[in-house]
Computed example of a mutant assay.
Amino acid sequence: MPYTDIEAPISLEHTRAHFAYEKVKEALINIQDLGKKNEFKSWAVKFPSMVATCGLLQTSSFYKEKKRELYIILKDWFSRAGFLNNNQDLLEYLLNDCTDTHLYILMTEESIEFLSWVKRFASILAQSTTNEPQNSNQGEQND
């Protein structure tokens, strides 16, 4: 049953946001190249709208092949939320095991809700991880 592992005192929206923040932060820390960070952000921003337009199955297939880091973040969320077992692959589940139309629609809606947080945090964190640290002597004047 989905959402069974999520603690009650925290709202589902808060849990989504926290999970997305941690996963995006982790992914961006592992990406050293500035161009790759910007690419990650760009594809993260597109992810929820691609699910809404193309469908969860088609978009998952694309992201698994082309943007694996983002696919894994979504797969991990579905595992955390109880849709998948920890060792289950999202794409294989959608292709072979998700035969209930209502569950597929719920998963599509859930992915859009969750990926909206991924999109927000990728935009914020990609920018903050690419900024150079400020010089501690910034306030001093050079004569």
Rank of each mutant, 00 (worst) to 15 (best):
C54V: 06
L103I: 04
I31Q: 10
L12Y: 14
T101Y: 03
A27G: 00
S11P: 07
I72T: 04
V51Y: 06
F62E: 11
E26Y: 12
M50V: 08
F121Y: 14
Y104A: 15
K41E: 13
E92N: 13
N85H: 04
Y63E: 06
F121A: 04
N38A: 08
L70R: 06
I124V: 15
S128R: 07
A52H: 12
K36R: 09
W77R: 08
K66Y: 13
S11Y: 11
M50F: 13
S116A: 08
T59N: 05
S123N: 11
L94V: 01
D100A: 03
L34K: 15
C54K: 08
E39T: 05
A20T: 07
L84T: 00
L74R: 01
L115F: 03
G55E: 11
L57T: 14
E26V: 12
E109F: 08
C98M: 03
A17Q: 15
T108Q: 10
L74P: 01
L84K: 00
Y104H: 12
K67A: 10
K64F: 09
D76T: 04
A44L: 04
S42V: 00
R80W: 10
W117V: 01
N87E: 06
Y21H: 12
L90C: 00
M107K: 02
I6M: 12
T129E: 13
E7V: 09
R68F: 14
A122D: 02
Y21E: 10
E69Y: 09
S136N: 01
S79C: 12
S116W: 03
E26Q: 15
V118P: 03
N87K: 04
I124K: 13
L56M: 02
C54Q: 06
I105G: 00
E109M: 09
E132A: 08
L103N: 00
K25L: 13
S60K: 07
L95Q: 11
R120T: 05
T59L: 08
K23W: 05
I29F: 11
A81D: 09
Q134V: 03
W77G: 02
E26C: 11
A44T: 01
E13K: 13
S11G: 15
H14F: 13
K119Y: 00
M50S: 11
R68S: 10
A81I: 03
K46D: 00
E7W: 08
L125K: 06
F83H: 00
E7R: 09
R16Y: 12
V24I: 07
E109D: 14
H18M: 14
W77F: 11
F78W: 03
A52T: 11
T108R: 09
